[in-house]
């Protein structure tokens, strides 16, 4: 489904952050990427999404065989990619619900489907907001405007639920969440996940993986995946930290 081969990327001053990432994600799989601060985890999701602050130096990223790196940012999203960044951006003045409807209709237009009508969209958003136990305040406010860290993360999962992407790359979705919110957000991810979809979780901690069970765990360090394993690897990392990997 998502294939990343020898992906290298740098920032404006020429510093290379990603130094050859290789990752194969198949439909129905949940992958977790862990790693110390500054290892390139957040950069990976932004590069795949097409953030203009990064330059791709080499490699490829394909989604169902289509070259994502040749697409515009919105085309990548409409092809089935969903990226949730660590710090979701606030956009005052753009109503959250109107934004969601615009995003969904952009995808539908891209896929040559009719735009969703008001009644159908209301039913959809009511259902997804109930799933994530979100209150009415989310409807009237600007996108992420004045939200707490946890509210922003919940709003990200709402967007994921509405847009129904093939592959979701969620960067530290668990940060800023209290225990109850973590359970709700994780429940939302599990609900959205299906045999024809894939999720990549970027996290520092095991706690999210207690709720969303990964099939594979990868360790990213110095811009490369240096170790991959099963879910037991996350527990080992929690216990031993990262230094033992390189020492061994």
């Amino acid at each position: 489904m998502l294939s990343i081969k020898d992906l290298k990327a740098s920032i404006e001053d020429g510093t290379q952050i990603l130094k050859g990432i290789n990752l194969e994600v198949k439909a129905g799989e949940v992958h977790a990427i862990m790693g110390p601060n500054g290892s390139g985890k957040s950069t990976l999701s932004k590069v795949i999404a097409g953030h203009p602050a990064y330059h791709v130096d080499g490699g490829s990223v394909t989604l169902d065989g289509k070259d994502l790196l040749q697409m515009e940012i919105n085309e990548r999203a409409n092809s089935g990619l969903f990226i949730s960044t660590q710090y979701p951006t606030e956009i005052p003045g753009v109503n959250n619900v109107e934004f969601l409807k615009m995003a969904l209709n952009s995808k539908r237009v891209f896929l040559e489907q009719p735009e969703i009508d008001d009644a159908e969209f209301k039913k959809l958003i009511d259902e997804k907001m109930a799933l994530l136990e979100m209150d009415e305040r989310y409807r009237d406010r600007g996108v992420n405007e004045g939200y707490s860290g946890g509210e922003k993360k919940r709003n990200e999962i709402l967007q994921m639920a509405i847009l129904d992407p093939k592959v979701s790359l969620l960067d530290e979705t668990d940060s800023g969440l209290d225990i109850d919110a973590l359970r709700i957000v994780a429940g939302g991810i599990n609900h959205i996940m299906g045999p024809d979809k894939a999720v990549i979780l970027v996290t520092h901690y095991q706690r999210l993986l207690d709720y969303v069970k990964p099939d594979f765990v990868h360790v990213l360090r110095h811009g490369k995946i240096i170790l991959s394993g099963g879910p037991e690897l996350a527990l080992e990392l929690e216990e031993k930290g990262y230094d033992w990997i390189e020492e061994n």
Binding site: I73, T89, G93, M102
Partner: peptide
């Protein structure tokens, strides 16, 4: 226009031209 806001909107599938219009309207509306 704020490049992070523009990225956020386009990363949700909204075409760049529409995203710019949304941001300019939001700036005015505020």
């Amino acid at each position: 226009l704020d490049s992070e806001q523009l990225f956020y909107l386009t990363s949700r599938g909204i075409p760049e031209k529409t995203a710019k219009e949304m941001l300019t309207r939001a700036f005015a509306k505020e």
